[in-house]
Design a protein around this nucleic acid. Sequence first.
DNA 1: TATTGTTATACTCTATAACTATA
DNA 2: TATAGTTATAGAGTATAACAATA
Lengths: 165, 165
Amino acid sequence: MSDVDNPQTVPEADAAALSMAVRQLFRRLRAEAEPGAFNLSEVSTLARLDLHGPATTASLARAEAMTPQSMGAILVSLERKGLIERHPHPTDRRQTLLALTAAGRCERQRRSAAKRDWLVAAMERLDEAERRALIAAIPLIARLGENEGPADSREAPPRAEHAGG
Amino acid sequence: MSDVDNPQTVPEADAAALSMAVRQLFRRLRAEAEPGAFNLSEVSTLARLDLHGPATTASLARAEAMTPQSMGAILVSLERKGLIERHPHPTDRRQTLLALTAAGRCERQRRSAAKRDWLVAAMERLDEAERRALIAAIPLIARLGENEGPADSREAPPRAEHAGG
DNA sequence: TATTGTTATACTCTATAACTATA
DNA sequence: TATAGTTATAGAGTATAACAATA
């Protein structure tokens, strides 16, 4: 009778293993990014704008669980690359809506269609059961990354923004 | 995320979702670290030294999938905190063995026993089936982070270039 | 010549603080 | 006062390059 018996107890070993696995995969993801190309946040933001349409800096920041300033830097980078453009908000002049340009949408598609990056390839190397197990865990990982702050909730009020359809 | 019908085809959407989930959880993990305390790499290295015994910079770097220089910086930090110490390798004078000090082992235990960091707490919020699914995926994530490089394998870098001047 | 490790340096990503403009 | 956004600055984490010592 160990941990399975008491669902309230998660062995620290599992948390440590998850932490390490996530950290290594993250570093690997980052290392794979070609220099000068998009980083992970840019890709993610581009995808979000493509899937959900124009959005503001603040809403993107919330969705990606980062500060508006950090998101602002990402948006500046994307704008410099000509992938997004800014439009005034129709009613609230404080806000600015970010939208994909034609070039941005094209880049998105190029990435999806042609590039087939190493993560896709690596996932294809798993057998079917493993792949199913991995995919089943994705929303759980996302939930761990999203939710309840321990002491200081970042700034994530229960907002119905979801990633990755 | 569905489309598991064709095992040869991993939808890019799944890869993108995994990438995003991992990225967010990583940022969250990093953000949770108290300033001045250990970062994720330090914790991981400390754990490795505790579990596997003394090791060299190079072997630790390989194990953590990072460069020896980066690992060196982590080790310097741990050494300054008095958590590890260096011992000469018995036969090869190029090598230095890193080992936990008593203080290092104590810190490790303190972390495991007392701290119960937010990741453990977050995992406890999952129901049992979810937790099982998550834990089942951990080795798969680890494998994705470890294995075969697409173009440049980290483990065995082809030394195509020798210094000329 | 290859390997172990160190030092110096630079870059990427994200955070905090301070500010302006609008609501 | 609260919210949206920008600018400036700082920091963590890791990488590359150049080097020295040993094998």
